[in-house]
Amino acid sequence: MYPASRLADVQEATARSGLGALLLTPGPDLRYVSGYDALPLERLTCLAIPAEGAPFMLVPRLELPAAQHSPAGGLDLELVPWDETDDPYALVASRLPGVEKVGLADRMWAMQSLRLRAAMPGAEQVLAGTVLRELRMRKSPAEVAALREAGAAIDAVHRQVPLFLKAGRTEREVGRDIADAIIAAGHSTVDFVIVGSGPNAASPHHELSDRVIEPGDVVVVDIGGVMPSGYCSDCTRTYAVGEAPADFLEYYEVLRRAQDAACAAVRPGVASEDVDRAARDIIAGAGYGELFIHRTGHGIGLETHEEPYIVAGNREPLEPGHAFSVEPGIYVSGRHGARIEDIVVCTEDGGERLNNESRELVVVEA
């Protein structure tokens, strides 16, 4: 999952990019390179990968055992502990003399960025994503296997949703049961739970509320978590509690065809925006174009949202190993809405869906 060779690959990519070093603090970039899921603390943890010379990781002394017992402890990597009275930013700078340009972790805290700037005033700061994005976008077979495992786990939760989704219960009550099921299915943490019922189904990122689910409601359930591997799940299905409105049933079938078409469009060399267009053309052609208000998808891996983004204007061609959501939606404000989402991986000759629960409207008893 976190091969020892990755550190050397990133160092080579850093040198090719013209940067003097990468500086990675706790977050997905650090975990991708080292396997260390470090706590995000006010005390600095920083993996420094110089274009030339030996990489090192500065860690607070009290966090040294955790770093040693993580995958980072098995790398050809010096772990440098610092004490409470040390200035860790000065320590990083002292080990990187003459560096003129550094790549900072994309999710680095502003406090850390500014203190590094003060400690290395001659070094231009850019995003580490300029080096890491290509590597992180192309998932290895082990990463795809981890995403496949995550997909199966969240599918298992969707199979249980009809047991939780009953008229008379609140969205919050249903969401609490779903969150418990996400952990029981093998995730280490719950990332998000969206239960949008009735008019709330028309809000793509609706938060759980105390709205009571009623007979005839359409309910959008969008859920995801993080597996012990660090890789994420994300899947949306739409449910009806009893008989759904007739106008909803008409556009749900359009949506299902659009999602199928976008998944079928996935193959190497196809531009990301063309996958978006495959779904959007069908929805627009049926007269619902203005009700599809977001991009078709986002990349997924160690983050729920990462590159590539499946959106108009992104001409970047898909490559084997790219993993992303395909999730068109139709939303009728004040009434109801629907979304269907699968994670798809671009393969050598097409695409593989990692979510396999039925995409038909699931009707539960009112």
Rank of each mutant, 00 (worst) to 15 (best):
D9H: 05
Q11F: 04
G20T: 07
D29M: 04
G35H: 02
D37G: 11
L39F: 13
P40C: 09
L44S: 12
T45M: 04
A48Y: 00
I49L: 03
I49H: 00
G53T: 04
P60G: 05
A66G: 05
H69S: 15
P71R: 08
A72L: 05
G73C: 07
G74Q: 05
E78C: 04
W82M: 14
D83I: 08
D86V: 05
A93M: 10
R95W: 04
E100F: 03
A105N: 14
M111D: 15
R115F: 06
L116K: 06
M120N: 15
G122M: 10
A123F: 13
E124R: 12
V126F: 07
L127E: 09
G129D: 08
M137T: 08
S140K: 02
V144E: 08
A145C: 11
L147D: 15
A152F: 00
A153L: 14
Q160V: 09
F164D: 14
R169N: 12
R169A: 06
G175R: 09
I178Q: 07
A181M: 14
H187W: 13
V190M: 13
D191R: 12
V193P: 05
G196I: 00
N200R: 07
H206N: 14
V212L: 13
A244M: 05
A244Q: 09
A246C: 05
F248S: 04
E250P: 03
R257G: 02
A262R: 01
C263S: 12
A265L: 07
V266E: 13
R267K: 15
S272H: 09
D281Y: 00
E290M: 11
F292V: 01
H294T: 06
R295M: 10
L302R: 09
E307I: 05
E307H: 14
A312M: 05
P317N: 04
P320I: 11
G321R: 08
F324D: 06
E327Q: 15
G351S: 13
G351H: 04
L354T: 11
L354Y: 01
S358W: 06
R359G: 10
E360L: 09
L361S: 12
